[in-house]
Amino acid sequence: MGIVKALEMDGLDCRMLFKQLGLDYDALEDPDARFPQDSMTRLWQRAVELSGNPAIALNMGKVVRPASFHVVGYALMSSRTLVEGFQRLVRYQRIIAESADLSFRQMEGGYGLVLTVHGDHLPPTRQSAEASLACALAMCNWLTGRTLHPMKVLFQGAEPVDLAPYQQAFPAPLVFGAPYDALIFERSDMEAPLPTANEAMAQLHDRFAGEYLARFSESRVTHQTRQVLCRLLPRGEPKRDVVAQTLHLSQRTLQRRLQEEGTSFQSLLDDTRRELAEQYLAQPALTLLEIAYLLGFADPSNFFRAFRRWFDTTPGEYRARSNGQAGQ
């Protein structure tokens, strides 16, 4: 996966990094695997801490290829123009990432590719958006066989101290503190014929991508279940029948769909509680008792037992150790 190559360019050990964050490194080999946006947020945050490079996400533009996006990349490659390619990208982007919205439209005398990244509980880092913009521009360069110069590039993030990596990645006027993240392109660049265009292949890839998206959209119950669990946990331990009802599924169907995606209701509940426990412990204002109830434990001793099973330590020791590391 591109993100591994991007992080390794700054000397990071990705296998170790994934292990520290509780992420499945081997899932990178599975084109159907997805990481929640909060996991990606924690990954980027840790990568910036370890590398000391806030612009590390821009490395993504140096490693991306159409194959990085599987069938979507090939659909782009066979498009007649970048306009057609980006229209396909918007149509199929959920195959690449569920936590981002893309729109492509005419604007300001050209065309704009506008990106919105959604966090689950944590606000997404600027690195997620910057990686996506760098990938999109690199794809344009790869598909056209030349270096495109956008009319401008918009970033929601504040202007960084070191502009050089941004100027290198985006040969265009840069606007920081913008209302959204976007690449604004010249009309002529977007409407020029692509050397890789192939109408017959485009139709074939459209069919593959459409079938994949339909299967993917139907099956991603894990993500929806996790969101419902997060919403219900502060009211007590969520029951499977209540979650199934919220998702308009029968209990049997919910369990079967989760099983098809390699998990179960109980595993998902346990994983969600573990992830939330880490986030809550990082907030000093929350007491351990409050955290136990926020995680849906009626009896705090059950929270302490579960926490020791997850992290082989107590919540208090974990918090003290985390605070000590943060202060170094």
Score class of each variant (00 low, 15 high):
residue 62 K to N: 12
residue 307 F to C: 00
residue 54 P to E: 00
residue 247 L to T: 08
residue 51 S to D: 02
residue 262 G to R: 09
residue 119 G to H: 09
residue 132 S to V: 06
residue 261 E to R: 07
residue 3 I to L: 08
residue 47 A to C: 13
residue 138 A to G: 12
residue 136 A to F: 13
residue 250 S to I: 01
residue 287 T to A: 05
residue 147 T to Q: 02
residue 104 F to L: 03
residue 20 Q to V: 09
residue 128 S to K: 01
residue 183 L to T: 03
residue 53 N to V: 05
residue 290 E to A: 14
residue 112 G to H: 07
residue 257 R to H: 04
residue 141 N to P: 12
residue 128 S to I: 00
residue 94 R to S: 14
residue 171 P to E: 10
residue 86 F to G: 09
residue 195 P to V: 05
residue 235 R to H: 03
residue 295 L to Y: 11
residue 164 A to K: 12
residue 323 N to S: 10
residue 230 C to S: 06
residue 59 N to D: 03
residue 282 A to S: 14
residue 93 Q to R: 15
residue 164 A to E: 09
residue 225 T to V: 13
residue 302 N to E: 13
residue 210 G to R: 00
residue 299 D to T: 14
residue 234 P to L: 04
residue 233 L to Y: 10
residue 7 L to I: 01
residue 148 L to P: 04
residue 315 P to D: 02
residue 240 R to P: 07
residue 70 H to G: 11
residue 286 L to G: 03
residue 195 P to T: 06
residue 45 Q to C: 09
residue 276 L to G: 04
residue 88 R to C: 06
residue 289 L to W: 11
residue 234 P to T: 04
residue 91 R to P: 08
residue 13 D to M: 09
residue 91 R to C: 13
residue 130 E to V: 00
residue 13 D to F: 09
residue 103 S to R: 05
residue 32 D to A: 14
residue 308 R to H: 00
residue 323 N to A: 11
residue 299 D to S: 11
residue 128 S to N: 01
residue 86 F to V: 06
residue 306 A to F: 00
residue 280 Y to A: 05
residue 277 A to W: 06
residue 264 S to V: 02
residue 197 A to K: 09
residue 35 F to R: 11
residue 227 Q to I: 06
residue 226 R to D: 08
residue 296 G to H: 03
residue 35 F to V: 10
residue 94 R to F: 15
residue 72 V to C: 10
residue 96 I to T: 07
residue 115 L to D: 06
residue 300 P to Q: 04
residue 271 D to S: 13
residue 39 S to R: 14
residue 298 A to R: 01
residue 45 Q to D: 13
residue 131 A to N: 00
residue 57 A to Q: 04
residue 60 M to Q: 12
residue 325 Q to T: 08
residue 230 C to V: 06
residue 20 Q to R: 13
residue 54 P to S: 00
residue 284 P to C: 06
residue 278 E to T: 10
residue 72 V to H: 07
residue 282 A to R: 06
residue 141 N to Y: 05
residue 231 R to E: 05
residue 286 L to I: 05
residue 201 M to S: 09
residue 187 R to N: 03
residue 59 N to P: 02
residue 5 K to P: 00
residue 181 D to Y: 01
residue 310 W to I: 04
residue 225 T to E: 07
residue 178 A to W: 10
residue 169 A to Y: 13
residue 146 R to M: 11
residue 202 A to V: 02
residue 245 Q to M: 08
residue 33 A to W: 08
residue 82 L to T: 11
residue 43 L to V: 10
residue 174 L to M: 02
residue 319 R to S: 03
residue 194 L to P: 06
residue 81 T to H: 10
residue 42 R to F: 10
residue 293 Y to L: 13
residue 32 D to V: 04
residue 29 E to Q: 15
residue 63 V to T: 06
residue 4 V to L: 02
residue 43 L to Q: 10
residue 59 N to R: 08
residue 178 A to L: 08
residue 319 R to V: 04
residue 91 R to W: 07
residue 107 M to T: 01
residue 128 S to C: 02
residue 94 R to N: 15
residue 36 P to V: 11
residue 291 I to F: 14
residue 104 F to S: 01
residue 16 M to V: 11
residue 15 R to D: 14
residue 207 R to C: 09
residue 303 F to V: 02
residue 62 K to Y: 14
residue 164 A to W: 07
residue 185 F to E: 02
residue 75 A to M: 08
residue 53 N to M: 01
residue 127 Q to A: 08
residue 306 A to H: 00
residue 74 Y to F: 13
residue 300 P to A: 01
residue 309 R to D: 11
residue 141 N to L: 05
